[in-house]
Design a protein around this nucleic acid. Structure first.
Ligand code: FES
Ligand code: FES
Lengths: 150, 150
DNA sequence: TATATTTAAGATAAAATTGTCTTAAAACTT
DNA sequence: AAGTTTTAAGACAATTTTATCTTAAATATA
């Protein structure tokens, strides 16, 4: 798997949040049921996104989370970086420290272009792009496919 | 990290093996010292590659491992598949089962092209390509940079 | 103010990955 | 044939990731 499970769960949640109104907060409990993710685990992941200012949270009744800015202003890269860190966009594919800075590894040249492509597509794609795509074509964001947009 | 540590160690070892003669076997002990990888851990990884017929092994004095075919005939993809499995070349980036086969996920279209690029570059690059590159330019394949080609 | 709801934070547990150690089996050397 | 070297295999341990559970803090509502 290219991303950690935490990261995948975070992406699913963020794409869903981008598909709904940002008026008011969405409870994590409700989110976890809708997306079929463990409530406590999802809570932790969303806390990371809140700490990274991609989400705003509110305690108490009527509390929950919501995107801190419009879905069109949040890139997939921001979400991945907040959860898995920037590694996939920057690290040496052979795990050597300081990719490119000093002597690179043999795979550097073949990998750099691919990594740039990954970086480009995650930088230029927003949560809104994904939620529009998913909603328009009624695509899956849960394994069982029971998820319903809107 | 895009690949597991096992996979990275396996790639480093295979690239090095492609840089030397296939006459005779190379002891894993010597390999592990040269590459600065735990002997027992490396042994396990190379066993997977042997089971996958990318390496041949021989027990006893003068024993060790060697590439089962020339470095030009083994692709990076084969090595990755043997250790980490085919996931990165085939799986849904959102972790959903059966990417593309039934309803895809919202990220499918943006990801498929990128994944194809990863697949292409790992399919068209051989161990020999990497060992030639590394040897010609004296590049690193260990973190400390103490590794010496040849 | 008291109570219920909900996130925050951190302790704990389970599972997967990474790493080490021991014993067995095979092949060479003497 | 006996002893040494080396991979094979699997038990064991440490670490990281994933998941659960408990308590605290904040907010709304009655
Ligand atoms: S140094 Fe290895 S990918 Fe850049
Ligand atoms: S279905 Fe998600 S990437 Fe193909």
């Amino acid at each position: 798997m290219i991303f950690s499970k935490s990261c995948v769960y975070g992406l699913r949640a963020m794409i869903y949040l981008a598909s709904i109104s940002r008026e008011g907060y969405v409870s994590i409990k409700g989110l976890s049921e809708k997306l079929d993710i463990s409530f406590h685990f999802l809570t932790k992941i969303l806390q990371e996104l809140t700490a990274d200012d991609l989400l705003e949270s509110m305690k108490g009744p009527k509390g929950g989370v919501r995107l801190s800015k419009s879905g069109g202003e949040i890139t997939l890269k921001e979400v991945v970086k907040a959860i898995d860190g920037p590694g996939i966009f920057t690290e040496c594919v052979l795990g050597l420290p300081g990719c490119g800075s000093e002597k690179p590894c043999p795979m550097h040249d073949m990998w750099e272009g691919t990594r740039d492509k990954i970086n480009d597509v995650f930088t230029t794609t927003s949560l809104q792009d994904m939620s529009k795509e998913g909603k328009a074509k009624d695509l899956r964001i849960t394994p069982d496919g029971q998820f319903i947009w809107g």
